[in-house]
Every structure is written in C-alpha cells, then in structure tokens.
Design a protein around this nucleic acid. Sequence first.
DNA 1: CCACTGACTACTT
DNA 2: CAAGTAGCCAGTG
Length: 102
Amino acid sequence: MEEFTKNVIEVIKSIPKGKVCTYGGIASMAGRPTGARQVTRIIHSMSRKHDLPWFRIINAKGMISLPEMRGYNQQKALLEAEGVVFDDKDRIDLKRFLWMGS
DNA sequence: CCACTGACTACTT
DNA sequence: CAAGTAGCCAGTG
C-alpha cells in the first residue's frame, strides 16, 4: 500500500460533514497534485472494503460525474441531507462547500 | 508480472 | 462555449 493511497483515505475520511472536495484537491492534499485519477481508483477499490464517504467527492466543476443510476442519486441525496445545495444546473457552489483541508 | 481501467484536469482546438 | 487531447499512476486480475 502506497503512502499516497493511505493519505487519500485519510483525507477522504476527514472531510467534515456538509462539505465536499474535488478529486484534484484530495490528490493534492495527499501529496500527489497530479493524481486525480488515482483518487478515483482508490474510491472504487477501497470503498468496497473500508466504508469511505465517497459521496463527498465531486469533480473540479462542482458537479457529480456519475451516471444517474450509479450512485448519483444517492450521492446527491446524501449531500443535500448534509446541507449542500445544488443549483438549477445540478452544480454545487464550490465557494461555499468546497473543503480544502483544515 | 503485465495490461487494463478509471466519478479527473488543464490546455488546445 | 463545446469537444478533443495529452498527462497522470496505482489497484486488480
């Protein structure tokens, strides 16, 4: 297990409720600014064994990239339940909800 | 061990 | 502003 991977897990687990984070942001905090795609893999692989709050992860545009029947609905519902707001274009206001570490 | 596969991102057309 | 392209790199089988 690489350090990077562990860090990513840590970061994901430390995202506060009601906040979201981008792939790039997580990768960056984990020490690999260019590893956005690896974050994706980690979420897929690790969330199966560990129970990571994958629903707090979104892309750089503040949107969920998943097909609707693949977790999109669940993710949106969970986020809204935590207070995150989606605009009329289903985008999240990153200025208010993006978490960049403590 | 090698190849494939990604919920990406930033830049260029 | 939409669409294409090139970096990116480790988990899984």
